[in-house]
């Protein structure tokens, strides 16, 4: 059902102008939380300021992705050492294990008080099955020749449907503007064979830009190396083709479960249930008609 109903919006429709699918691999294990990506994105894309005040949530005053934040660096402070559930062990045991983790020499583990500081630069996932694009009634959201998902600012009428459709909470309406804005994966730069501003500004290459196939290969090697080094919870997020969104153009290497970073652990494109949703609405409409006919006409005698 979903195959048939899926929108015709893949680069294949570009024929000869189709380009390889481009994307981001964000390796959070080497993110240092400098926020250069946030700044570079704002400067290049002329994204307005997003003053959220002081949150007190570690070093994160950006809070989330939105109309005025197309990159968002998350900061998570954990006392629990890598792969060890301290609550289930005695303090002595936990301290001993702490030592073990320190000896493995993992770079993200802060020595001293046993605090682990996770940082991750979040961004629009440029889903293969993009719910925002599917529900957009105006066609403002479209699939580019690079396989990315972009909002056309001269078409969007601010209906707001894409906002709750996105399983990642990426899109939002810009105040005083009324339209919806999000990461374009620097569509303008891609057209000139330039890498997106965030990836170029990233000093540690935590944000890597390239052809999706290459990035996935690189990511698999990296997560295996990390696992071997003892990062048991290291995981690739949205790096396959068979998840609930058919894979993402922007995927991540995480050191803990997705929800720890504010990411949904099992996102699904609502379009997959389009058939049953329309069927229920159709049956209800038919039942309404039949019931009205029975009640109005049936009582005539």
């Amino acid at each position: 059902m979903s195959e048939r109903l899926r929108t015709h919006a893949w680069p294949g429709t570009y024929d000869g102008e189709a380009k390889p699918r481009m994307g981001f691999f964000t390796d959070t294990s080497i993110c240092i939380g400098c926020k250069a990506c946030e700044v570079a994105c704002k400067e290049w894309n002329r994204v307005p300021e997003s003053p959220q005040g002081f949150t007190g949530d570690s070093y994160d005053n950006t809070v989330d992705l939105g109309a005025n934040s197309w990159r968002h660096v998350a900061f998570v402070e954990q006392r629990k050492p890598l792969g060890i559930d301290a609550a289930e062990r005695s303090l002595a045991e936990a301290a001993n294990l702490d030592q073990l983790v320190a000896e493995t020499g993992l770079q993200t583990y802060q020595e001293g008080d046993g605090l682990r500081w996770l940082m991750a630069s979040d961004v629009c996932k440029h889903c293969t099955e993009a719910a925002c694009l599917e529900v957009c009634p105006t066609g403002a959201l479209f699939r580019t020749e690079f396989g990315t998902v972009v909002v056309q600012e001269d078409v969007c009428n601010g209906c707001g449907y894409c906002v709750p459709a996105c399983p990642f909470g990426v899109l939002d309406q810009r105040e005083g503007d009324g339209r919806v804005w999000k990461c374009t994966l620097c569509y303008d730069r891609l057209k000139d064979d330039q890498e997106p501003a965030c990836a170029q500004a990233c000093p540690t290459d935590s944000i890597q830009f390239g052809e999706l196939d290459d990035l996935r290969e690189r990511a698999r090697a990296r997560v295996e190396a990390l696992a071997e080094a003892g990062a048991e919870r290291a995981q690739l997020y949205l790096a396959g083709d068979d998840d609930g969104i058919g894979g993402a153009g922007a995927f991540f290497l995480l050191l803990d479960d997705p929800e720890v970073y504010g990411l949904p652990p099992d996102p699904v494109d609502a379009t997959r249930d389009l058939g049953s949703t329309w069927a229920a609405a159709g049956v209800a409409a038919a039942a309404l008609g039949a019931a009205l006919a029975a009640v109005v006409l049936g009582g005539r005698r």
């Binding site: 939105g66 909470g169 939002d172 504010g262 949904p264």
Partner: peptide, 16 residues
């Protein structure tokens, strides 16, 4: 029992 990022929402609240 369940973890989240500083208790923040994961999806956006509808703006309707």
């Amino acid at each position: 029992p369940q973890r989240s990022y500083h208790g923040n929402p994961v999806i956006k609240e509808p703006i309707w």
